[in-house]
Simulated scan of single mutants.
Amino acid sequence: MKSQWAALYENLKSDIEDGRLAAGERLPPEQELSARHGVSRNTVRRAYLALSQDGSIRSINGRGSFVMRTNVTYEIDAVSRFRDVLEKQGVASSSQLVDSAVTTADAELAARLETTEGSAVLSQTTIILGDGVPFILTTRYFPADLIEDFEQRLLRVGSFTSLLKEAKLGDLHRKSTTVGARLPDERESSLLKCPRNAPLLDVVATGMLADGRIVEWQHAVMNSRLIKLSFVNA
């Protein structure tokens, strides 16, 4: 016989999967759901915890628990950008800076950026959010001498593609994308607010200008419970 919390979990899970509880919708407070189903608040709390652990809902202190938006499709082509994809699918996008620094390229990074070992490289790590929910954690590397006052201008503009246009360097084109899958480490789990047992999409991509010059190499991890990748032929 199923425990009360497991039965409640399955009922709520079914409501989410069938659309009776829509993405972004706030779930009833524990006390209200407890009275509605004739169970204790601890039972409701355990069911909510299980839903949070499997990625179905997200609990925000002081605000409640909300149904996670799932299955955002990211169609990857030569020029697509994830924040634009979110907006087109009705998801409000934003970004959160984790860190930004100028460092030197080791042999591997120099090869990826087609520059010389020891050259200055701008590194920037950001979280991309949709409706306030973390979707992607990405670290990007750029040749530091690409644009004058690069770091300050990128922090001001907030978008590399917009900065390229401001600097009259043209559009950013994707040269290559490689996708794998793995479990998150502790830092990734914390920043993406996902369980340690929830698989991530591990994505490595290289960006170039129209003249073929490599200007970006990035390593991103994506919450696979929220994102589906679709590759589009140019």
Score class of each variant (00 low, 15 high):
residue 209 L to F: 10
residue 205 A to I: 05
residue 214 I to V: 15
residue 215 V to Q: 13
residue 190 S to T: 10
residue 219 H to C: 05
residue 195 P to F: 01
residue 220 A to S: 09
residue 204 V to N: 09
residue 187 R to Q: 07
residue 207 G to P: 13
residue 188 E to S: 02
residue 201 L to V: 06
residue 220 A to M: 04
residue 205 A to T: 08
residue 210 A to K: 13
residue 205 A to N: 11
residue 187 R to F: 04
residue 220 A to Y: 05
residue 187 R to G: 00
residue 204 V to M: 11
residue 207 G to L: 05
residue 212 G to Y: 08
residue 191 L to C: 04
residue 205 A to Y: 05
residue 198 A to N: 03
residue 216 E to G: 09
residue 204 V to A: 13
residue 197 N to A: 11
residue 219 H to G: 00
residue 187 R to D: 06
residue 189 S to T: 03
residue 203 V to C: 06
residue 203 V to S: 04
residue 193 K to A: 14
residue 214 I to Y: 09
residue 193 K to P: 00
residue 187 R to Y: 04
residue 201 L to P: 05
residue 190 S to K: 09
residue 207 G to D: 12
residue 191 L to K: 04
residue 200 L to M: 05
residue 210 A to M: 12
residue 208 M to K: 10
residue 201 L to C: 06
residue 195 P to E: 01
residue 218 Q to G: 15
residue 211 D to L: 13
residue 212 G to L: 03
residue 205 A to Q: 10
residue 211 D to N: 15
residue 199 P to H: 09
residue 217 W to P: 06
residue 192 L to Q: 01
residue 210 A to G: 10
residue 191 L to W: 04
residue 193 K to W: 03
residue 199 P to G: 10
residue 216 E to R: 10
residue 215 V to C: 14
residue 194 C to L: 05
residue 210 A to W: 08
residue 189 S to N: 02
residue 189 S to R: 03
residue 187 R to H: 02
residue 191 L to P: 02
residue 218 Q to A: 15
residue 208 M to C: 14
residue 216 E to N: 15
residue 197 N to T: 12
residue 206 T to R: 02
residue 204 V to G: 08
residue 201 L to A: 11
residue 188 E to N: 01
residue 203 V to P: 02
residue 194 C to Y: 00
residue 216 E to Q: 14
residue 192 L to H: 00
residue 210 A to I: 06
residue 207 G to K: 07
residue 213 R to L: 11
residue 197 N to F: 12
residue 198 A to T: 03
residue 198 A to F: 01
residue 205 A to K: 07
residue 216 E to C: 09
residue 209 L to S: 09
residue 188 E to W: 02
residue 210 A to N: 12
residue 208 M to G: 12
residue 208 M to E: 15
residue 192 L to N: 00
residue 195 P to H: 00
residue 189 S to P: 04
residue 194 C to N: 00
residue 197 N to C: 07
residue 218 Q to E: 15
residue 197 N to K: 13
residue 214 I to G: 11
residue 194 C to E: 00
residue 213 R to G: 13
residue 202 D to P: 07
residue 203 V to T: 06
residue 215 V to K: 15
residue 198 A to S: 07
residue 196 R to Q: 09
residue 212 G to Q: 07
residue 190 S to D: 08
residue 191 L to D: 03
residue 209 L to T: 07
residue 207 G to H: 12
residue 206 T to N: 04
residue 188 E to M: 01
residue 199 P to Y: 06
residue 219 H to Q: 11
residue 198 A to Q: 06
residue 203 V to G: 06
residue 204 V to P: 00
residue 198 A to C: 05
residue 209 L to R: 13
residue 187 R to C: 01
residue 196 R to H: 10
residue 194 C to W: 02
residue 217 W to F: 14
residue 195 P to V: 01
residue 204 V to T: 13
residue 210 A to F: 08
residue 189 S to E: 02
residue 204 V to W: 04
residue 190 S to W: 07
residue 203 V to L: 15
residue 213 R to D: 09
residue 197 N to Y: 11
residue 192 L to M: 01
residue 202 D to C: 10
residue 193 K to H: 12
residue 209 L to V: 08
residue 213 R to H: 12
residue 216 E to L: 12
residue 205 A to E: 11
residue 200 L to E: 03
residue 187 R to A: 03
residue 211 D to M: 10
residue 217 W to C: 08
residue 189 S to D: 00
residue 199 P to R: 14
residue 219 H to M: 08
residue 195 P to M: 00
residue 198 A to V: 02
residue 192 L to I: 01
residue 190 S to P: 01
